[in-house]
Amino acid sequence: MNPDALQRALLAALAEETTPQSVPRLGKRLGQGASVVMRALTLMGSSALGGQAGPGWVQVELVDERWMAALTEEGRRHVAQHLHA
C-alpha cells in the first residue's frame, strides 16, 4: 500500500470509531505491520518532524502499555471535507 493510500485508509478506519484504537489492531485490519502504521500515524500527528509540524489529525498515546490512536477534532474535519466529500 502506498503512503497516501495508507494515510487515507487509516483516517477512514479511525473515523469509523468513537474510541481510540490499538495500533496493532489497525495494522491487522489494514494488512500492515504495527511499525508501518505507527510511522504513518506519527506523520499525521502534531509533532514536528524536520522542523515542520504535522497536520494534527491524529493523536497517539500509550495507554496501559498499548499504543492507541484516535482522530482529533481537526482530523474529523479533514475526513469530513476530503474523504467523505
Rank of each mutant, 00 (worst) to 15 (best):
G54L: 02
A5G: 10
G31D: 09
E17F: 03
Q7S: 11
M38A: 05
R39Q: 08
A69T: 02
A12E: 13
V79S: 05
Q32G: 11
E17W: 05
R77H: 12
E17P: 00
A48V: 10
V79W: 08
Q21G: 00
S35R: 15
E74L: 11
K28H: 14
G51P: 07
W57E: 08
V79I: 01
E17N: 10
R8L: 07
N2M: 09
M38H: 09
A5W: 07
Q81Y: 02
V60Q: 05
R25V: 08
D64L: 13
Q59T: 12
A12D: 13
E65L: 12
G75C: 04
G51I: 05
L11E: 04
G33V: 12
T18E: 13
R29T: 13
G31R: 06
E65H: 13
A80E: 15
V63N: 04
L62V: 08
A40P: 01
A13C: 09
E17V: 06
V36Q: 12
M68N: 08
W67Q: 14
G31T: 01
G31M: 02
D4K: 08
D64F: 04
L43K: 05
G75T: 02
H82S: 00
Q7V: 01
L30W: 06
D4C: 06
G45C: 00
V23L: 11
L14P: 07
V63D: 05
P20Q: 06
E73W: 04
T19M: 10
L83T: 05
A85Q: 11
P55Q: 01
G51F: 09
T72N: 03
R76C: 04
A9K: 03
L43M: 10
Q59E: 15
G27I: 06
S47L: 12
E74V: 12
L49K: 12
E16T: 04
L41R: 03
Q32V: 14
D64N: 15
P20K: 00
G56M: 03
P3T: 13
Q52W: 03
P20L: 06
V63C: 03
A34N: 09
W57M: 12
A40R: 03
P3I: 07
H78L: 02
Q52C: 01
V58E: 00
S35H: 14
